[in-house]
């Protein structure tokens, strides 16, 4: 599989209805917020987790789409881990050069594991050559408007401990955001995919799988806490040059998300208008709407 030849920048919009997209361990699992603006946040690592889970589910977890950072929740231990046809047979040389060997290990990990190839990984060796920087970089997702978390108290009509049998009921709490539309920016570097020494071999197929994951990952991530999360838009800027043809910030400005005049309290995606300014696009940049 050949590495990608183009730089990509993308804008990803997703929303949540009556749920908690990403709890903050610092404040009792309340939805994360930027305290200055009250806007909601979803961390990059939270989204990466969902991408990994989706790829594991969609591809069955075998090479070349194995997932290194696994969650036990999807232990589909089918162990169809067959010998990878492209497997490298490392020769146990008499005098292996540490660096060359480290590089070989890195390459092997990239070949077999989708998440190492995409997001990178830190591998420990005596020689510090086992650091893989993945081509895909995600920022924090931030909500368009301030979100107002609500604390919901719920009751359970059974108890855990025998000694509480008199109580008959226990109470619990959860936080929800009635509605929030979140915007996330992402970057795909062709150089980190295809560079001779640093490249991870991230290919067109891998890229399409990434976009597929972003489009569908919430469908397979339902839970009581998250309820309805939906991918709404995925707008990709493709540069015809490996280094890019325009600055990412200028391209991102072309995607405007505006609340409709009459929607002072947004409660659905239809309360927003998304416009993509395609006029005078920089030469060599095309807009692809994946969703």
């Amino acid at each position: 599989m050949a590495a990608i030849q183009n730089r990509y920048d993308f804008v990803y919009l997703f929303d949540i209805i009556n749920g908690n997209p990403n709890g903050d361990p610092d404040s009792g699992n309340m939805p994360r917020q930027d305290l200055d603006t009250q806007k909601g946040l979803v961390t990059d690592v939270s989204l990466k987790r969902k991408i990994r889970n989706y790829v594991q589910l969609a591809k069955g977890g075998g090479p070349p789409y194995a997932i290194y950072m696994q969650e036990k929740a999807i232990l589909n231990l089918q162990h169809q881990r067959a010998y990878d046809a492209l497997g490298i047979k490392p020769e146990t040389k008499k005098l292996p050069k540490d660096e060359a060997e480290a590089r070989e290990i890195t390459r092997w990990m990239c070949t077999n594991f989708y998440d190492v190839r995409t997001f990178g990984a830190v591998m420990t060796t005596e020689v510090n050559a086992g650091q893989v920087r993945g081509p895909v970089q995600l920022g924090f997702a931030q909500s368009i408007d301030p979100v107002i978390p609500q604390e919901i108290t719920i009751t359970r009509s059974s108890v855990t401990n025998e000694k509480d049998v008199e109580k008959e009921r226990t109470m619990g709490r959860k936080y929800i955001i009635p509605y929030g539309l979140y915007r996330c920016h992402g970057f795909v570097s062709a150089s980190l995919a295809g560079d001779e020494t640093k490249g991870t071999g991230f290919s067109e197929e891998d890229l399409n799988l990434l976009f597929e994951a972003l489009t569908n990952m919430f469908e397979h991530d339902r839970s009581a806490a998250r309820m309805e999360m939906n991918a709404q838009r995925l707008i990709v800027f493709k540069h015809d040059n490996r280094m890019g043809n325009a600055s990412a910030q200028d391209l991102f400005k072309r995607v405007a998300v505006q609340r409709k005049e009459n929607a002072s309290l947004p409660r659905s995606f239809s309360d927003y208008i998304i416009t993509i300014n395609q006029e005078n696009l920089p030469k060599g940049v095309v807009v692809i709407e994946k969703l």
């Binding site: 881990r81 480290a102 990984a121």
Partner: peptide, 23 residues
């Protein structure tokens, strides 16, 4: 972190069995 030694043995065996990190 990814233990390089583990990756190395898996590489020799030519299988990914047991090579993952449970978060």
């Amino acid at each position: 972190k990814v233990p390089a030694t583990k990756a190395k043995t898996a590489m020799r065996r030519g299988s990914l069995e047991g090579l993952h990190l449970l978060v």
